[in-house]
């Protein structure tokens, strides 16, 4: 079992995933989706795979999200409650979860430890080597969040 940091990341991932599906505003759902993908990138960094994490950030959190935003722009976001045949879906997904997890425990997957990779080291590396990119990325993300919020509030007011 993982330590507390792992479970925090777990909670963030699953939470953002659920928000991405359940949020009333499509735009907030997209932002939540970006958070989900970035957290997964973080997991990759944690698994000592910085290149994969970078690609995940660039392609998913960058490219795909922009596409999604463009699509939302073209369609026009909706605030309808996204309903559906929830019962069947919940049953099936829970079945999958239980089945998968129980088999991961029951099967003969050995649990020898990973090479530990500290996120502190990662942070040091980011600051030392990629600080410029990190700063630019940080600005971009914050700008994105701000603009999204601004747009949504404006739309709300217009309505």
């Amino acid at each position: 079992m993982g330590n507390v940091y792992f479970w925090i990341i777990y909670a963030v991932i699953i939470g953002s995933a659920i928000i991405a599906l359940e949020a009333t505003s499509l735009l907030w759902a997209a932002i939540s989706f970006v958070v989900l993908l970035s957290e997964i990138a973080l997991v990759y960094f944690g698994l000592n795979m910085p290149v994969l994490g970078g690609v995940q950030l660039a392609i998913y959190a960058g490219g795909v999200t922009i596409l999604v935003l463009f699509a939302i722009m073209m369609i026009g976001e909706s605030y309808k409650k996204p309903g559906g045949k929830a019962v069947k879906a919940i049953v099936l997904s829970l079945l999958l979860l239980i089945l998968g997890t129980s088999f991961s425990f029951l099967s003969a997957i050995d649990t020898f430890p990973f090479k530990t990779f500290s996120t502190e080291t990662l942070g040091t590396v980011f600051v030392e080597k990629y600080s410029f990119f990190t700063i630019v990325l940080g600005f971009i993300v914050s700008a994105l969040l701000y603009m999204a919020n601004a747009i949504i509030t404006k739309k709300r007011e217009a309505k």
Partner: peptide, 22 residues
Amino acid sequence: LLEADVHAYLFLSFSLLAVGVY
């Protein structure tokens, strides 16, 4: 330190799968 064994990671990925399927 992000410390977890393989079961924890698998639980994470299965949870994500379950949410996705839902």
